[in-house]
Design a protein around this nucleic acid. Structure first.
Lengths: 351, 351
DNA sequence: CTATCCGATGTATTCGTTTACATTAGGATC
DNA sequence: GATCCTAATGTAAACGAATACATCGGATAG
């Protein structure tokens, strides 16, 4: 019977030393090398011996010491996920899918956030490197060059997500953010809109919002239109902040008849402002988001948006990073399809 | 100049060996012991020496080897966060706040999900133990006894969150889920409601939904009322699933005049069903959620809910777990206040 | 002036695995 | 029956930092 001395619940001061491979070896009557092989290369050990070792492991409740293993084998079985923020529900969904894939393959996921600060991203990544993480998944295609230098100098595999790398210089799993807003804007143009507004995250260091803005401008240009920068607003990904920016757009004269949000938070924030200002959607104004969140889909009227394959991205990124860790080549780049979801927040402009 | 040989972007086959404390020691003209002290006990080393060591560290881009450090010092500086799912936005917010606190104190956060399966929770926790995690934060108060046995036998400190431990047997940072729905239900009773419905997550192994259901029943009992189990529905935390359950409740005759959701997802799912069925809120039916999400707050009408202090819980849990890791006592239990947020989804019943 | 102490540093062991290499026994080959 | 191979296992040396203990000046106390 283990004797456990705790000075308070949830805290233990003196604990029986955890059993080591040596203990298992002694009980099973083999060497520690055989214990190690039983764990890592079971097909190389005699079935009968294997059985004895496994029995000893169970009996002693032996749990291998990850740090020792990592030190000697130079692999920690940990993957770092570096995201802007799990607070944005969509990154959380990607992260969750990634976690499931990693977990199934025996990897643990270490999570770090950088809150849209690319220098902070380098710092947290260095933290994770020092914690021994084997490989990385990042959100976004654009990063501080120091990040890639760090990864290269430590030989850490990585995968970028949520975008496509135009130069194909890095392995990327994502979707075409520019094409997404391009499609939405085209649709709005076809409905007859000619005067547009934009609600966006700051573009500095954020390739998702940069690309989404660029897609909108490209569609306008194709139709001989242009976005007046006075009709564009940039701010944090936050409902209330977005609503406040939208009030500024609503005050413009003439007022845009269609507003594109670079994600559903901006669009819904915009809808809130419209409600507050008595502007009717879609009668007075059409509005669109990106990412097709529940938040947008449940509004009155429901939000026209783009379904981005965020879960698939997480899953595929997990597969790619595992492939690289296990020496398999992996695909250099995967671009997943999105889908336009037309709902009630868009209509032809009032004539 | 480092020579880096990569066979493909994002993957490196041969990399210059990373520099070790020995390299730093040589360059600085000291022993490895001094390098170690410069890093961990800087006040014990001569300022001038310290400067030389730091310079060498920068020059060699030395990053300490976490596994080696963990092996020898028996501390990995990693904390495990074991949550049901980051897909539920509120757990993500707690996790994010926790992450920020841990990061600021130099700890990395390892994230694992168990998808509301308590046996799975034990398994992933064991995984994290074997990866060397020093301490844990869990969501919920009720867990498999095997979980606590595992933690005890490895002497790992932990903190439970998102609830209160009635027996005060475990350190807990959270809020009173029962009191939350009690308050809402009382409010509905005061409005004049007498016939209630419930939309809840399955209660097995989920103390949050268990307590939230119990709070509602307690308020009813206090008013001499009772919840007819035929007016209660249980299902996954998912908008569409909740809407389908709500349709069943709407089909009941007589139909409840007020429905309590155990969180905002259930409540908003319920609102969707009402829209589909042409049932007016709050005219025909009042509905309430818990957790005060953006999702609920932006509905038409906006959802009456309870603001649970999920961010504060994450922050406080981080502080508690760090205190325990650093040998400070920490408070045994912290119960944070919630706040009822009355909006347009509730009104007196039609007479 | 000597004994004592203290701050700064070095020496050498240790943490618990993995793994290169050595060893052994038995079977196949000629 | 000697030789070679192979499968199964053991032996022992890493991996890279933390740390107990030893050492060495120089300051302080008596």
């Amino acid at each position: 019977m283990d004797k456990i001395i705790g000075d308070a619940p949830g805290r233990f001061v003196d604990v029986p030393p955890r059993s080591s491979a040596k203990d298992v070896a002694r009980l099973a009557g083999v060497s520690t090398a055989t214990v190690s092989r039983a764990l890592n290369l079971p097909q190389q050990v005699d079935p009968e011996t294997l059985e004895r070792v496994r029995h000893a492991i169970d009996k002693l409740r032996y749990v291998p010491h990850g740090a020792a293993r990592a030190l000697r084998s130079r692999r920690s079985q940990m993957v770092g996920a570096v995201v802007p923020s799990v607070d944005y529900a969509l990154y959380a969904r990607t992260t969750s899918a990634l976690q499931a894939v990693l977990d199934a393959a025996g990897y643990a996921m270490v999570l770090a956030e950088h809150h849209y600060d690319l220098a902070q991203e380098v710092r947290v990544t260095e933290q994770l490197v020092s914690h021994g993480v084997d490989a990385f998944v990042f959100v976004g295609v654009y990063h501080d060059p120091a990040l890639f230098a760090l990864l290269a100098s430590h030989g850490k595999p990585y995968v970028l997500t949520w975008g496509v790398d135009p130069m194909r210089r890095h392995p990327t799993v994502g979707f075409d953010n520019r094409a997404a807003t391009f499609a939405l804007t085209r649709y709005l143009i076809e409905l007859g809109h000619r005067h547009f507004g934009l609600l966006s995250a700051p573009v500095a260091g954020n390739d998702r919002s940069t690309e989404r803005g660029a897609g909108m401008r490209a569609a306008l240009a194709q139709a001989g239109l242009e976005l007046d920068e006075a009709d564009a607003r940039y701010g944090p990904i936050d409902l209330r902040a977005a609503a406040n920016l939208m009030h500024e757009i609503l005050a413009r004269r003439p007022r845009p008849t269609a507003v594109v949000g670079t994600n559903d938070i901006f669009a819904v924030g915009g809808m809130l402002a419209c409600r507050e200002a008595g502007v009717r959607i879609p009668g007075d104004l059409s509005i669109t988001g990106v990412d097709n969140t529940d938040l947008g889909a449940t509004q009155t009227p429901p939000l026209t948006s783009i379904r981005t394959p965020v879960v698939e991205v997480g899953r595929a990124a997990g597969e790619e990073v595992i492939a690289r860790l296990e020496g398999r080549p992996g695909e250099s780049s995967r671009t997943l399809p999105f889908e336009i979801v037309i709902r009630g927040s868009t209509a032809p402009p009032r004539r």
